[in-house]
Design a protein around this nucleic acid. Structure first.
Lengths: 211, 211, 211, 211
DNA sequence: TATGAATGAGGTTTCATTCAT
DNA sequence: GATGAATGAAACCTCATTCAT
């Protein structure tokens, strides 16, 4: 049996190591401000080694996005759950799951990067729109529509409601990444509590007395 | 009193013209990808002239942000209105006003730029947090609190509610700027309709039957 | 009257200075082995200045060839002389003129460079073939044909004769440039004497007794 | 006696295979533009293996030239034939032989490469001059001189005549390698016909009426 | 011995900034 | 003040060479 040599083992791990290093640095400093040598250094290799695996900084970026997005896509699809109980409950669970699995981790960070660099990588942006944004909106939109049809929800406009469900989570993440290091800007509640509160608020509304 | 010559008038307008050009380009291409010569060209002056007004690209950026933020700050403060009727109405008006005056215009764009470049300009980010984010959150938070005290609103958690009010608008703007050019990603409703729908949704909640 | 400032005067001279520097270095070391910084240095400017005038090393090369070829082309055309006496005399004069004006100077050197780099710059090679080689061959070929028709020359094959007239001069130049610095390789006759001898040899042939 | 294993045979052939690959590539793309990995790949070995046989790209080049030149040298020497008939006949045969065995094949190509890279490899150029150019010129020069002494030839200047004999062949080869791929530049005669025509022309001269 | 992953010097090119005019 | 030619630091990328396996 061919035992992998240490060298081979390192080689196999390289692409992932480089992608991870790239993700970290692109988040920390942005794409343009990250030098390819830094990525290599953080991955523990020399400048030239990076180019054995990715033929340019742009390709590295694209690979990094796709790599981290694929989890996202799979996760999104998997959540097209077959849930029986009330839709409201399902929505709450899905939002918590999204935060725990995506918003809180690498995939969430990629959302920020995509937003920042979309103009510079139009094909990638289209890919992101087609594979992530649109499916997610459709998924959530279908659930809302189901709830409306079943009488669980009021006859709300779908698109606006989807937006209202998704935006706070995305924004929370963007905010943390951009201004999270400033004391005055930390949310005093945990993200989970915030989500719960938002969900409850969304369901019951602000008003004390329904008109 | 010396009447300003056309030249003098031209010169007095320079800083603003440069700042406007910078804003446009930073939005279009990002900070790093915008060359200082382009900014000068769009403002109709030569490369060297830019440096007579702003000693470096970084300083130009900071001046641009501060310039466009000041409107925002003033606007925010001005809205700390002495409103008499129900808070819900006030909130709705404020959100519409925010979108019309800020989110839709230059100041909104600056929010995106700040988010993207916050890591690169920490003092500026702090300034933004202190002068824009925190005051805005306090303003909205106070209104919510007032509404709760007066019995107009349920006893909702302030912070989460503020977040839920602000995030959708900010996110709409970011989204338009990042992916707006992709067909699949255009909102089919106008921003104004979206805002109305959101406000209504927020006030009454999703559920058809209050529990 | 707008007097050219020293700066302007230098600027106007730059392209030519850079082209001259490039020619020298490309001849000395070849295209690939010449660093763009060296070209700039020899022209007395900094690295970056080169790129104000030529957007890449390749474009610099092409400009250099075209610049030096244009003389050649003009010269070739001008030699399409309206000569009355014997063609043999004309051919001799033309070869001497070619050597004096072209082979001996920069344009000749460009022939070597074109030969060496033809594979790397196919469009340029085609340009060279169309604008220099083919016209020259046609010009000489027409003269031979005229001589044959008038009975001055034997009924020699045109193409081979053209080749036999041109090759020695070109080869002399290539040889000088490649091996001229090696003592054992210097021709002991001057190029002019060599040309005379060759012309005479070509006209009368090697054989002592015509058969 | 140990019979060579296939592996051993393979190994013994390596240097030649590498040299052949190098020759092909250096001709196709020039020395600088040929990557050592390409040479290895064309020879069917890995990059590192090349360096077990030749310690550097420069040394590979030198070995390649020397290898292919040695044939040339031997061939040149062998042609210093003891021919009895007229020298003119011998010269014609020698030129045909040179074209068939050298000009047309690898050794001819090496002449082009030497010419192009002479400046970069001065010792090699000297070697080439001493071992190839000078002997060849001496050989041809001696034959001319013999013909002059025997009364077969007119009292032509030796050096110019040697040049006139050699240049067309060399130039034909260089030309084919540089511009051969351009339609407008193909000779319409075969090289052999060209040689015949040249020889005949050289012997009898251009003029219809000997003076 | 052969391999090919890794290295890093060195090349091309960009662009913020300076400064003579 | 305004200009834009000039600069050179710094980024990207290549590839000859090394060396662990």
């Amino acid at each position: 049996m061919a035992t992998a040599t240490p060298r081979q083992r390192r080689k196999d791990a390289r692409p992932q190591e480089l992608l991870d290093a790239a993700l970290e640095l692109f988040v920390e400093k942005g794409f343009a401000a990250t030098r390819s040598e830094e990525v290599a250094a953080r991955a523990g290799v020399a400048k030239g080694t990076l180019y054995r695996y990715y033929p340019s900084k742009d390709e590295l970026f694209k690979a990094m996005v796709r790599e981290n997005l694929s989890e996202h896509i799979v996760a999104s699809a998997a959540q097209a759950a077959q849930h029986e109980g009330p839709i409201a409950e399902l929505l709450g669970l899905m939002m918590q799951a999204w935060w725990a699995k995506i918003g809180h981790g690498k995939a969430g960070v990629v959302c920020k990067i995509m937003m920042v660099e979309a103009r510079h990588f139009p094909e990638l942006a289209r890919f992101y729109v087609d594979e992530v944004i649109t499916p997610t909106q459709n998924l959530v939109g279908d659930l809302i529509a189901r709830g409306v049809r079943s009488g669980e929800f009021r006859a709300v406009p779908i698109e606006a409601t989807v937006h209202l469900l998704i935006a706070p989570m995305l924004h929370m993440m963007l905010h943390e990444h951009s201004f999270g290091s400033h004391q005055a800007c930390h949310h005093t509640m945990s993200p989970e509590e915030l989500l719960d509160a938002q969900m409850s608020l969304l369901l019951h509304g602000l008003l004390a007395t329904p008109d």
